[in-house]
Each structure stands twice: as structure tokens, then as C-alpha cells.
Amino acid sequence: MSSDVLVCQGISKSYGEGEQKEQVLSRVDLTFQKGQASVLIGPSGSGKTTLLSILGCLLAPSEGELIINSEAVNFKDKSSLTEVRRLKLGFIFQHAQLLPFLTIKENLVVFARNTGMQADDIEQRIQLLIERLQLVAMAPKFPSQLSGGQRQRVAIARALLHRPSIVLADEPTAALDWHNGQTVVELLLDQARVEQAVLVVVTHDVRMLPLFDRILAIENGIVQVKQNVK
């Protein structure tokens, strides 16, 4: 099996019809390798969220193909899309979007169970991740009792729990101050590398760029790739 976990082949996306038609992505070709961390940048409205939604099997491209683990994604079959998300993807959003009525521990358990993990595996995995993300003391609390940075760390744990091969994050630090934001991104990068997951992070913060393996810059529908030399 090739190390290309995620491949975009000629992906285009337009919204609307006729006069209103807006071309957001034009024939994007990209490959993402195991353990590779990319940062996606671009002006507001350039299509970062759109691309991430397509990579995340949440939005169908107008043209082109998305290949995950050598298998083309069938965007017509909603239920198989859900299966891909359930088993292969991890998400982190701008606001952690934890379930407010569950404690941190319960939030993690519920998602892990949904992915079909075994009970003892769930216990060990949660223990490991909350230790690595310094969340042990938070486990019995509710999301509303946590700070924004703590919540994002929980979101990272949730995104990695089921050992997904791809982790996608849309502006995970936008709601945090610089210091907290940097900590969260560093933790996310560390954990994704340990887990050998493909990581794609959207950010507006140029100070984060050197932390990643490569930069994907999107403008006028075209994605340009720039390798970071380390």
C-alpha cells in the first residue's frame, strides 16, 4: 500500500447556478502522506473550509475524486460517507463543539463507542490521551466548566481517540489567545505525529506556519504547495 493516505484528483467545487455561479475550487490535485502535517491558508472566502469539508466527506465536490486509503469515496451514498467519517476521520472545529450535557469523560466515551471500539480499549485509550493532553483533572467536569484551550484539548483527544488516519481542523485556535493557540497546535501536531495521522489545519495565524511540514496556500480556487524546510 502506498503511503498516500488521502488523494484529491481534479477536485472542483462551485456554488450556485448560472449567473450566480461561484467557482471556489478549480481542479485541485493534492496528496497527503501518512503522518504528514499540512497547514491550509488563504484569504477569507478563498475556499479553505470548502476544501476541508470535501476532505472530510461532508461536502460533495462538483467534479473530481477523493481517494482515501486507495478507495474512491462515493459522495452519492450518505451512509457510506458517514462510515468513512466514523472510522477514518477525526475533526476539530473552531469551537470545540463538545456535547454540553455530557462530562468530558462521557463525551469521549460516547464517541469512542460509536466507532465500535472495545470497552477496555476505550478505557486505556482515553486514559492515555487525557494524560498526554493534561486533561486528567477535567474528566469529571462539564464542558462549560472548562476554558477555551482546555476544551480544544478535549476536542483533540476526541479527534484522535479511534486512531483515525486523517485529522482535519478548521481554525482550531481562532477562539484562543496566541499562547493558548500555540500550545493547542503544538499538542495537535505532536499527537498526530505519534499516531501517524494525516493532519490538515486551517489557520489565519502566520506564526503557526513554521510548525507544519508544508503549507497549502489557496487563492482564486488554486492550491499552491510549499514545503517547509526544517
Binding site: 461532508l58 451512509s79 458517514t82 467519517r85 466514523r86 475533526f91 463543539q97 456535547l99 454540553p100 460509536n114
Partner: peptide, 16 residues
């Protein structure tokens, strides 16, 4: 609804 959307995005099926 936002929580349901999160659940859907994170791989919960509609039937769940």
C-alpha cells in the same frame, strides 16, 4: 441541532 450536526459530522448515522 448544532450538537446533532456535530454528532453527524463525527460519524453518527441518522438512524442512531
Amino acid at each position: 441541532l448544532p450538537n446533532y450536526a456535530t454528532l453527524l459530522a463525527l460519524g453518527f448515522h441518522h438512524k442512531t
